[in-house]
Design a protein around this nucleic acid. Structure first.
Ligand code: ZN
Ligand code: ZN
Length: 280
DNA sequence: TGCCTCGGACCTTCAATTCA
DNA sequence: GAATTGAAGGTCCGAGGCAG
């Protein structure tokens, strides 16, 4: 995130070679999907957020109360630009119509160029995996949108087989994400919509117990009450249950049941709250 | 060994510009 | 006014470092 003080120091972040558009590498990558607005905690931690509030990560860390949208900076206006490329005889930077290629999705589905070209927001919205609709009734929540604008959030289509029995992600479940939006394997799409929402109460990584099964009662129900520290802060850590006296959730960092040093400077950073970046 | 940090790749948004 | 461009501003992946 550009919030890193160091990264913003005046250097444009667009210096990387433009790889926009379908690069059509043999290994087709799905676009990484981003939330519109990460919560402050995830933002500071530079970790994946989702559209629900509290977000999955905050729920995992027991930070529901602190899960609020981060403030977005208003875009500057009045900035002059250089002349644009001519459109006729054109070579659009990204919509390269002369090189329109079919996009092949893992699994063999081919999207015709026309379709590809017609999709400005290539990937339809996919909600966070595993949120129980009953708990997150608000999810997915259509963004307010502007007057006269239809919300573009809901997916009209999502061409991903819902892995009813998807194998566990290769490593640490991609930790906090749905495979990060990349499809390492054709069967590893973790879409939440389109397909009838299956009874998949929780993302495996917030299972209250390693042996807990997806069919088990959603741990969030606990979280909603008071036991918020049952979940190890890190998905791969669920085996370690809270060693923190529940009586004093603040003894350690509120969301970290594993150990208190979370409160220590620096560590308080990305760990959960993100927070104080190292000076310099 | 596993968590944390953070550089930078990647994505989204939207004002500026161009065209019909 | 619609379409397009392209940069600002954002998200978050993943390598590497460090602490336990
Ligand atoms: Zn979040
Ligand atoms: Zn949050």
């Amino acid at each position: 995130m550009t919030v890193h003080p160091i990264t913003i120091s005046g250097v444009p972040m667009h210096m990387y070679p433009c790889s926009r558009g379908p690069t059509n590498t043999p290994t087709t990558r799905t676009k990484r999907r981003q939330v519109k607005n990460a919560c402050t905690n995830c933002q500071k931690a530079c970790k994946k957020c989702d559209d629900a509030r509290p977000c999955l990560r905050c729920v995992t860390y027991g930070l529901q109360d602190e899960c609020v949208d981060s403030q977005r900076k208003e875009r500057q206006k009045g900035i002059k630009r250089g002349p644009y490329k001519k459109r006729d005889g054109r070579q659009p930077a990204s919509g390269n119509t002369e090189h329109q290629l079919e996009v092949t999705i893992d699994g063999g589905m081919v999207i015709p160029p026309a379709v590809v070209a017609g999709v400005s927001q290539p990937m339809s919205y996919v909600g966070p995996v595993g949120y129980p609709p009953t708990v997150y009734g608000q999810y997915p929540v259509a963004p307010p949108g502007k007057p006269g604008e239809a919300p573009i959030y809901y997916p009209q289509i999502y061409f991903a087989p819902f892995p009813m029995h998807a194998p566990p992600p290769p490593h640490g479940i991609a930790q906090e994400a749905e495979g990060a939006g990349y499809a390492p394997h054709p069967t590893q799409y973790y879409s939440a919509f389109l397909a009838p929402y299956p009874a998949q109460p929780y993302p495996s990584y917030i299972m209250p117990h390693p042996q807990a099964r997806p069919e088990a009662p959603p741990p969030l129900q606990h979280a909603q009450h008071h036991v918020t520290h049952r979940y190890a802060p890190y998905p791969q850590m669920y085996a370690r249950h809270s060693a923190v006296p529940m009586g004093d959730p603040m003894g350690a960092h509120p969301m970290d049941g594993r150990r208190d040093p979370r409160a220590d400077y620096g560590r308080a950073g990305e760990g959960i709250l993100g927070g104080v970046p190292r000076s310099g």
